[in-house]
Amino acid sequence: MAPDPEHRLGELMESSNPSFETVMSCVFGIEPHETRTYLALVDRPGSTIDELEGPLERDRSTINRAMTTLYERGLVRRDRRLLDGGGYVYQYTAVALPEVKLMLHESLDLWTEMVHDVIDGFASE
Protein backbone atom coordinates (compact mmCIF):
# COMPACT_ATOMS: atom_id res chain seq x y z
CA MET A 1 0.00 0.00 0.00
CA ALA A 2 1.02 3.62 -0.51
CA PRO A 3 2.74 5.66 2.19
CA ASP A 4 0.42 6.98 4.85
CA PRO A 5 -0.90 10.36 3.71
CA GLU A 6 -1.75 13.13 6.13
CA HIS A 7 -5.39 12.23 6.75
CA ARG A 8 -7.87 15.04 7.25
CA LEU A 9 -10.53 12.93 8.93
CA GLY A 10 -11.60 15.81 11.17
CA GLU A 11 -12.96 17.58 8.09
CA LEU A 12 -14.87 14.45 7.20
CA MET A 13 -16.47 14.24 10.62
CA GLU A 14 -17.74 17.83 10.31
CA SER A 15 -19.91 16.94 7.31
CA SER A 16 -23.24 15.23 7.88
CA ASN A 17 -23.56 14.08 4.27
CA PRO A 18 -20.12 14.07 2.61
CA SER A 19 -19.72 13.39 -1.10
CA PHE A 20 -17.48 10.60 -2.35
CA GLU A 21 -15.03 13.26 -3.50
CA THR A 22 -14.91 14.76 0.01
CA VAL A 23 -14.38 11.34 1.60
CA MET A 24 -11.59 10.56 -0.85
CA SER A 25 -9.87 13.92 -0.32
CA CYS A 26 -10.03 13.69 3.46
CA VAL A 27 -9.05 10.04 3.84
CA PHE A 28 -6.14 10.21 1.38
CA GLY A 29 -5.07 13.69 2.46
CA ILE A 30 -5.32 15.12 -1.03
CA GLU A 31 -6.77 18.35 -2.36
CA PRO A 32 -10.19 18.44 -4.08
CA HIS A 33 -8.58 19.24 -7.45
CA GLU A 34 -6.40 16.11 -7.05
CA THR A 35 -9.50 14.04 -6.43
CA ARG A 36 -11.08 15.55 -9.57
CA THR A 37 -7.89 14.66 -11.46
CA TYR A 38 -8.16 11.03 -10.28
CA LEU A 39 -11.83 10.87 -11.30
CA ALA A 40 -11.07 12.37 -14.73
CA LEU A 41 -8.39 9.74 -15.19
CA VAL A 42 -10.85 6.95 -14.35
CA ASP A 43 -12.66 7.88 -17.59
CA ARG A 44 -9.43 8.42 -19.56
CA PRO A 45 -6.97 5.57 -18.83
CA GLY A 46 -3.52 5.93 -20.34
CA SER A 47 -3.72 9.71 -20.57
CA THR A 48 -0.78 12.06 -20.62
CA ILE A 49 -0.70 15.33 -18.74
CA ASP A 50 -1.20 17.21 -22.02
CA GLU A 51 -4.33 15.16 -22.78
CA LEU A 52 -5.85 16.09 -19.42
CA GLU A 53 -5.39 19.87 -19.74
CA GLY A 54 -8.64 20.38 -21.65
CA PRO A 55 -10.98 18.16 -19.63
CA LEU A 56 -9.61 19.42 -16.30
CA GLU A 57 -9.28 23.06 -17.38
CA ARG A 58 -5.96 23.23 -15.51
CA ASP A 59 -2.44 24.08 -16.62
CA ARG A 60 0.25 21.46 -17.13
CA SER A 61 2.16 22.22 -13.95
CA THR A 62 -0.94 21.90 -11.76
CA ILE A 63 -1.86 18.59 -13.37
CA ASN A 64 1.74 17.37 -13.07
CA ARG A 65 1.80 18.15 -9.32
CA ALA A 66 -1.58 16.44 -8.88
CA MET A 67 -0.31 13.34 -10.71
CA THR A 68 2.79 13.24 -8.53
CA THR A 69 0.64 13.31 -5.39
CA LEU A 70 -1.77 10.70 -6.74
CA TYR A 71 1.14 8.48 -7.75
CA GLU A 72 2.72 8.80 -4.30
CA ARG A 73 -0.61 7.88 -2.69
CA GLY A 74 -0.89 4.78 -4.87
CA LEU A 75 -3.99 6.06 -6.66
CA VAL A 76 -2.54 6.12 -10.19
CA ARG A 77 -0.06 4.05 -12.11
CA ARG A 78 2.27 5.50 -14.69
CA ASP A 79 3.95 3.96 -17.68
CA ARG A 80 6.70 5.49 -19.75
CA ARG A 81 6.00 5.56 -23.49
CA LEU A 82 8.92 6.16 -25.84
CA LEU A 83 8.34 8.81 -28.48
CA ASP A 84 9.25 8.23 -32.12
CA GLY A 85 11.46 11.33 -32.24
CA GLY A 86 13.25 10.39 -29.03
CA GLY A 87 12.43 11.00 -25.43
CA TYR A 88 9.41 9.74 -23.57
CA VAL A 89 6.13 10.74 -22.03
CA TYR A 90 4.33 9.33 -19.01
CA GLN A 91 0.88 7.85 -19.45
CA TYR A 92 -1.24 7.66 -16.32
CA THR A 93 -3.99 5.21 -15.43
CA ALA A 94 -6.18 5.44 -12.36
CA VAL A 95 -6.15 2.52 -9.97
CA ALA A 96 -9.51 0.79 -10.44
CA LEU A 97 -12.31 2.31 -8.39
CA PRO A 98 -13.11 -0.95 -6.52
CA GLU A 99 -9.48 -1.10 -5.36
CA VAL A 100 -9.58 2.56 -4.25
CA LYS A 101 -12.82 1.90 -2.36
CA LEU A 102 -11.10 -0.98 -0.58
CA MET A 103 -8.18 1.33 0.29
CA LEU A 104 -10.69 3.85 1.69
CA HIS A 105 -12.38 1.20 3.81
CA GLU A 106 -9.03 -0.08 5.12
CA SER A 107 -7.85 3.42 6.03
CA LEU A 108 -11.08 4.22 7.83
CA ASP A 109 -11.04 0.86 9.63
CA LEU A 110 -7.49 1.51 10.87
CA TRP A 111 -8.45 5.00 12.02
CA THR A 112 -11.55 3.71 13.81
CA GLU A 113 -9.50 1.00 15.52
CA MET A 114 -6.98 3.61 16.68
CA VAL A 115 -9.75 5.82 18.09
CA HIS A 116 -11.28 2.84 19.90
CA ASP A 117 -7.86 2.04 21.40
CA VAL A 118 -7.53 5.62 22.63
CA ILE A 119 -10.99 5.47 24.18
CA ASP A 120 -10.35 2.05 25.77
CA GLY A 121 -6.95 3.15 27.04
CA PHE A 122 -8.23 6.25 28.76
CA ALA A 123 -8.14 5.81 32.52
CA SER A 124 -10.28 8.04 34.64
CA GLU A 125 -8.63 9.37 37.77
Rank of each mutant, 00 (worst) to 15 (best):
D43N: 09
D120T: 12
A40S: 12
Y90L: 08
M13L: 15
F20D: 05
E14S: 11
P5M: 09
L82H: 09
E31A: 07
H7K: 07
R60I: 06
D4C: 03
P55D: 08
D43T: 07
G85V: 09
T35D: 06
R77Q: 12
E51Q: 01
D59R: 14
V95A: 06
R58P: 01
G46R: 11
S15R: 14
Y90M: 09
L102D: 14
L12A: 09
S47V: 01
D4L: 10
A66D: 01
D59K: 15
G46N: 13
V76M: 07
S124W: 09
E14A: 15
P3T: 04
S19E: 14
G121F: 03
I119P: 05
T37I: 02
H116M: 06
E21Y: 04
P3G: 08
M24C: 03
E125L: 11
R80A: 14
L97D: 04
R78Q: 13
E21Q: 14
V118L: 15
S107W: 11
T68D: 07
M67I: 03
L70T: 00
T93W: 05
E21K: 13
L9H: 04
T68K: 12
E34I: 00
M114T: 13
F28V: 02
E125I: 03
T93L: 08
D50E: 14
G74C: 06
L102W: 09
L39P: 00
G121S: 08
R65N: 12
E6P: 10
E6L: 14
L41A: 10
A40C: 12
E99C: 00
E11V: 04
E11C: 08
N64R: 15
P5W: 09
D109Q: 13
K101C: 08
M67W: 11
M13E: 11
H116D: 10
A40H: 10
C26V: 00
S124M: 08
M103N: 05
H105M: 10
Q91F: 00
M114Q: 14
A94K: 10
V118M: 13
E99K: 12
A40R: 07
L39F: 11
V118H: 15
N17G: 04
G85E: 09
R60G: 13
F28N: 01
H7W: 02
L41V: 02
L110E: 15
V118A: 11
F28T: 01
G85A: 13
V42K: 13
H33P: 11
P55C: 04
S47Q: 08
S16F: 09
I49L: 11
P18A: 08
C26T: 02
V42M: 13
R58V: 00
L56S: 03
E99R: 11
S19L: 07
T22M: 01
L56V: 02
M13C: 08
